Computed example of a mutant assay.
Amino acid sequence: MSPIPSKAQLMELLAHSVTTHYADFTASAADTGLTTSQAKTLSVLRSAPASMRSLAHTLACDASNMTGIIDRLEKRDLVRREVSITDRRVKNVALTEAGEKVIDTIRERMEQTQTGLDNLSDDERAELFRLLTVVFPR
């Protein structure tokens, strides 16, 4: 039986995996002509539209910076601004169909991440997913 890894060893492995994933994501985003911040914004919006304030909070950036990111994504028709149905003063940002395709392309081109996940069996992928949701609940 293998020795049980320490928290420090697990944290080191998690840090390595995040660093590798981030580098893979950054390179793939650049291939589509996007900055990492722009691509991360599309990734966040993949799950649901969000307010500008919520995006700035999630991406840990200043609201004025978020406006510039959204302006550039909107110019490329990757996102659109919509008036919130619950508060007309709030603008939500939603992915367009083109934005969905771009973020899907970025994820598909993440070679190191894709290769690593391809090395897992279906059962191993299911177990990794389960464990990650325990460690990082949504």
Rank of each mutant, 00 (worst) to 15 (best):
E74N: 11
V79N: 04
R76E: 03
E82D: 09
S84R: 14
R81F: 00
I70G: 03
V83K: 15
D71Y: 07
G68H: 07
R80W: 01
V79H: 04
E82T: 09
R72D: 11
A50E: 07
D77C: 03
L55H: 14
M52V: 08
I85S: 12
H57M: 06
L59A: 02
S64E: 05
E82L: 12
M52D: 04
D62C: 04
T86C: 02
L59H: 09
A56Y: 15
A56E: 09
R80H: 05
T58Y: 13
S84Y: 10
K75M: 07
V83R: 15
S54G: 08
K75T: 07
V83C: 06
L78I: 06
R76W: 00
L78C: 05
M52P: 13
D62E: 13
S54M: 08
D71I: 00
A60C: 12
G68V: 00
R81P: 02
R53A: 04
C61E: 09
S84D: 14
E82C: 09
H57K: 14
R80F: 00
R72T: 10
S84Q: 10
L78A: 04
I70W: 02
M52Q: 11
A56N: 12
H57P: 01
M66K: 12
I70S: 03
R76N: 06
V79D: 01
S64Y: 14
N65G: 03
G68F: 04
T67V: 01
R76K: 13
V79L: 01
T67W: 07
S64G: 02
R53K: 14
H57I: 00
D77L: 05
A50C: 08
R72H: 08
D71T: 05
D62Q: 13
M66F: 13
E74Q: 11
D71M: 03
T86P: 00
T86D: 05
S64D: 07
D71R: 07
R80N: 04
L73H: 11
D62T: 06
A60P: 07
D71P: 12
I70M: 01
L73P: 11
S84P: 02
L55R: 15
N65P: 12
V79C: 04
G68S: 03
I70Q: 03
R76M: 04
A60W: 15
A63H: 14
L59F: 08
D62P: 14
R80V: 01
R81G: 02
C61D: 02
E82G: 09
L59V: 02
S54A: 10
L78N: 06
D71Q: 08
C61H: 12
I85A: 14
E82P: 00
S64F: 13
E74C: 05
L73Q: 09
R81C: 01
V83I: 10
M52S: 11
S51L: 02
A56L: 10
I85L: 11
N65T: 11
L55K: 14
I69C: 13
